[in-house]
């Protein structure tokens, strides 16, 4: 394991919303964080990203990872900036931008947009895009920064099925190509199990289970954590497909 994040306890008032934990991950890995609402997923990601106190101690090969090497994408919200999509992506290079944007920075930004299938939106005003499109543009911005660790809070929450598949495939390819770690929170357990190398199940602010999707997404565990009665089916390649049912609907 190359990446280690030591998570401190996080309290809100008298309630401990996240208990101390240690998370390890290897380069090229997609680590999915799953759990019901209020389990502490966003708190955990913000702590790893250094976006809120207390901040996790994140090391990469034993060295503390500088904030510049962590690309954090918060949960989706509407952005109303009067900027074009390309201008927004270029901001991913904020620290190194001079008065004039270099042709290289522009070409790299356009290439990232192309990679996510967004090149046709490059000249559109950011504020005219849907929430899902804005989410993808901001993801493109993070990809342009090429951090060693990407921390993404529900990056597919506003996307349709096609774009969910596209973005998760791209993230997996990015992790493999650049030898980086991608930690992402997802609500769709089937998608998480299909694309993530490992999953970390959070419940009540504690890590309830960690491992491959097929191993941790058992009927009993899903029932306990989410309060549903799931059917767990398996595809030909062994990936679990979760079909949830409300407990009261079955009685």
């Amino acid at each position: 394991m190359t990446l280690t994040a030591q998570i401190p306890a996080v309290r809100k008032g008298r309630t401990t919303v996240l208990h101390p934990a240690e998370i390890k991950a290897s380069p090229c890995e997609l680590l999915g964080i799953v759990g019901p609402n209020g389990a502490g997923k966003s708190t955990l990601l913000r702590s790893i990203a250094g976006a809120s106190c207390p901040v996790a101690r994140v090391t990469w090969h034993g060295e503390v990872l500088p904030p510049r090497q962590i690309g954090y994408l918060p949960q989706a919200f509407q952005v109303s900036a009067r900027l074009s999509v390309l201008e927004c992506v270029v901001l991913g290079r904020r620290e190194r931008l001079g008065w004039r944007v270099t042709p290289q920075d522009l070409a790299d930004s356009a290439a990232v947009l192309d990679l996510l299938g967004l090149a046709h939106l490059a000249d559109r005003p950011l504020e005219s895009l849907s929430g899902g499109q804005q989410q993808m543009v901001l993801l493109a911005q993070r990809l342009l920064r090429q951090p060693a660790l990407m921390v993404l809070d529900e990056p597919t929450s506003a996307l349709d099925l096609h774009h969910q598949l596209k973005i998760l495939s791209r993230l997996r390819a990015h992790a493999r190509e650049r030898s980086v770690v991608v930690v992402l929170a997802l609500h769709d357990l089937t998608m998480a199990a299909r694309f993530c190398d490992r999953m970390l199940l959070l419940h009540g602010g504690r890590i309830a289970a960690c491992g491959a999707g097929a191993a941790i997404l058992t009927q009993e565990r899903i029932g306990n954590c989410w309060g549903v009665e799931p059917e767990v089916l398996y595809t030909r390649d062994g990936a679990p497909v979760i079909v949830p049912h409300l407990a009261e609907a079955r009685t």
Partner: peptide, 12 residues
């Protein structure tokens, strides 16, 4: 498409 995007930026 990336070329068009850069052209649009320059025009802007």
């Amino acid at each position: 498409e990336p070329g068009l995007a850069i052209g649009g930026y320059a025009r802007r």
